[in-house]
């Protein structure tokens, strides 16, 4: 009993799919911007802050890294109204995903900060830079370079993780798919299409990370093999 694939009912709902895709990209972008900002500030606080700040940062990181994103989402969306704070599903989604990414990226940023030798900061201070200027101009870029692969990997997890927001009916792609599936009963086709769209989204984001990386780490040093070759050429030319 071969199943006959029919994508027509799913594809005819393209406007909803496109809307969901845009919503997912929007949710991802907002969460990445806010989450990375939170992560960087928390990492700096944990790396170099006074004791109280370090403790606070640690508590935040441990809380968000040791609970499921879904529970964090439910707490914000269903829990906070009991304290008098009512968030829309979209707001709750951005805040929960940002805070989740903030905790994970803080640990990644911290690894980067720890990888940069203290003497680099001393050299900057000795030139008259403030601690903050030393961070910004001397530590940040080399530290980012060390952790960039780990960081972009985390961002991909975050982008895919936005699908969990469908559980509180925040507007995003998985919710759009679920609606299409429940009215067409084409489960296989619907989720194959969703998977394909998610792949396209993560690839687009990865291209963006690569471009940002090229902008941040604009070193134009030829790879080792080429350098060896050019040194060899020089020797040849001299001989």
């Amino acid at each position: 009993m071969a199943y006959e694939m029919n994508f027509q009912p799913v594809l005819s709902r393209a406007p909803e799919l496109i809307e969901g895709t845009i919503a997912t990209i929007e949710l991802s972008a907002k969460s990445i911007v806010v989450g990375l900002a939170v992560g960087l500030v928390v990492a700096l606080g944990r790396h170099d802050g006074p004791r109280a700040v370090r403790t606070l940062a640690t508590v935040y990181i441990e809380m968000f890294r040791n609970t499921p994103l879904l529970v964090q989402l439910f707490l914000l969306f269903f829990g906070l109204p009991f304290l008098g704070l009512r968030l829309s599903a979209d707001e709750a989604a951005v805040i929960a995903i940002s805070l989740n990414l903030g905790a994970y990226s803080a640990e990644i940023f911290r690894a980067g900060l720890a990888a940069i030798s203290k003497t680099q900061v001393e050299a900057a201070l000795a030139l008259g830079l403030s601690k903050l200027q030393a961070m910004r101009h001397v530590v940040l870029i080399p530290a980012l370079k060390v952790i960039y692969p780990a960081l972009t990997g985390q961002l991909t997890l975050t982008v895919l993780g936005t699908s969990i927001a469908s559980a509180i009916s925040a507007s995003e792609l998985t919710l759009a798919g679920a609606r299409i599936e429940s009215s067409t009963f084409r489960s296989l086709e619907t989720f194959l299409v969703l998977a394909a769209i998610y792949i396209a989204i993560t690839i687009a984001f990865r291209i963006l990370y690569a471009l940002v990386g090229r902008l941040l780490f604009r070193r134009k040093v030829p790879p080792p093999s080429m350098r060896a070759a050019s040194a060899f050429d020089k020797k040849e030319a001299r001989a």
Binding site: T119, E122, A123, A126, V138, I141, P142, R219
Partner: peptide, 11 residues
Amino acid sequence: MVFQSYNLFPH
């Protein structure tokens, strides 16, 4: 101040 390990900024 000049240091033993140069401490130029690599980037």
